[in-house]
Design a protein around this nucleic acid. Structure first.
Lengths: 220, 220
DNA sequence: TCCCCTTATCACCGTGTGGTGACATGCATA
DNA sequence: TATGCATGTCACCACACGGTGATAAGGGGA
């Protein structure tokens, strides 16, 4: 899987390669990389000290020394993921300011569909929010929520939803709907009667998102 | 937790109580009960041969003998859960036929909110759909999907959605949104900025569901 | 009565896990 | 050069898991 070692030394003699790099910062980075990679590829199940250490090519003792165990590693990973979300969301600027709140929400919702579909890490974060309530994980989901909120707030500018419309609740439901549908599509090929493998289904979903947003925000 | 034993024998002498009841059907029922109970209370994590056997007060060997291992147990549990969904959904008759497709979907959606909120087992089934792709679990989620579809179909009668509206996709998104929000509320007290512990939030969610349904189905 | 089949229990194996203590080794400083 | 500390490595523990083979105990039919 990993294949290339960090340095091209020839360990033919075996048992002679030790103290790999003696660079704590680099080692911590390797551990975090491995943790993120495992989370991305295998999800929260299979996430453990042994697995991370193995993937990082590092003794698990270092995880305890440098992060204070799994919980500490999760906290550190949380900060890293918060940053990741920032880059994913804020960087993706809404650019052209929209005409109305409804137009904007339509664009953001469709953008969210794209992100959720294309980013396994985003999917895993959403899943974690549902499955795990432990505080380190909670910190991660909180970071995600903050990034998401900042993204929407920044895009919104001074646009305001129509009077009498509970935008936060409605947006929460729309975001939830997109998240669930994407997540369900990962495992089952058929979700509530729709074929998630079929690209046409996703076109229908995008249209449905548009219809929902238009329906609530472009009310007569 | 369970408290009452199946028979009120007094095991004061210990090590003398053996061959508890010698009733295969009852034992199988106890195992299935325990499996369902564990699933309900602890979720798919912690679901294993040892845990089920322990909860059932039965040797795990019997799980292998009677169900052929965990997979077989899951299959049997799937049939039981399918039946459970039938009772939950079909029994809850929509009773009074509705005026329009939109009215009906509004009622069904709100009903789904109630069911999802009040039934831990329903929550776990939805979660399983997201986390596990193994075939026995897939069978369970398929059973759920079938029950849900039958429920909607039966309630629908001969009502039809307005022309030009992709009802399946829209309904899938709404069901997804409700599911995700309820699931997220189980673990985090704050979901996308809404306080799930606060009953007022749920009133807002119900209003939002109504607004969404009305928006798409009661188009001008 | 004896026998056999079903039901239930126990003891055990290999493996993986989270977690810890003791040891080796390199680098910088005194 | 010699000491101390940070970094990396190894061996080990207790435990829980999934899974299996052998063995006891009741019950019904001959």
């Amino acid at each position: 899987m990993e294949g290339n070692e960090s340095s091209p030394e020839a360990p033919n003699d075996a048992a002679l390669v030790k103290d790999r790099s003696r660079d704590r910062a680099a080692t911590e980075r390797r551990i975090l990389d491995a943790a993120q990679s495992i989370l991305t590829e295998q999800g929260s199940a299979g996430f453990g000290v042994n697995a991370v250490a193995r993937a990082a090519g590092v003794d698990k003792q270092l995880i305890y020394r440098y992060f204070g165990g799994l919980d500490g590693l999760l906290v550190a990973l949380g900060e890293r993921l918060a940053e990741w979300w920032q880059n994913k969301l804020l960087a993706d600027a809404p650019a052209t300011p929209q005409q109305s709140y409804g137009d904007l929400m339509e664009i953001l919702a469709l953008r969210l569909v794209q992100i959720m579909r294309s980013e396994p890490l985003a999917q895993q974060c959403a899943l974690w929010e549902l499955t795990d309530a432990s505080s380190p994980v909670a910190a991660i989901t909180a970071a995600r929520a903050r990034a998401l909120g900042a993204w929407m707030a920044r895009a919104r500018g001074d646009l305001r939803p129509p009077k009498g419309v509970d935008a936060p609740a409605i947006n929460a439901l729309i975001v939830s709907g997109i998240s669930y549908f994407v997540l369900a599509g990962r495992t089952s090929s058929s979700v509530i009667g729709l074929e998630t493998r079929d690209e046409a289904t996703w076109a229908r979903i995008e249209s449905a998102v548009r219809a929902l947003v238009k329906g609530v925000y472009h009310a007569p």
